[in-house]
Amino acid sequence: MTIPWFSANIPGPKQAKVVTPSMAAKIMGKAKRKMMICGSKIDGKIQKHIVDLSKEMSVVVAPSTLKNFSGAGFELVAKGVVEVTNLLRDETWKGFDGKGNYDLVAYLGFPYYLESQMLSVLKHFAKVKTLSIGRFYQPNADYSFDNLREDEWEKGLEDLVSLLVGRK
């Protein structure tokens, strides 16, 4: 079994299924209402993936990164992660586009512990499936990347994006 990045961060018997980039792409591909939630720790390299993924799904970015996305050429919502996560647990919430709540959300670019807690909210109090595509294994998600080396992770994201966006 994969050990969480913070080794003490073991929530209980129910822990995320480790997925490879291609599995993650499949999961995302199948979802009908998917959204990506990005944190404050998004650098230039990851940003380009997000811009690409935005063609496939709604994207919420941390307000502090909004500036960096200006001119990226797509509609995005800027909201604190606590607020977005709170909305997601409300089944009657209409989504950012008014079309209803989501069935899959992917988290990327957060401090490890904050993401872990947000995933825990959804694990226990929402129907939405969660996927963590950060560098480290997040046990509170439904699906998570394994703990990866930096280069492995970067390649993983590349693969994920090309599988998803390239499929069209």
Binding site: P11, G12, T85, Q117, M118, S120, V121, H124
Partner: peptide, 9 residues
Amino acid sequence: PMYAPFCDL
């Protein structure tokens, strides 16, 4: 309140 359990147990 929005709860983020630290532990499921």
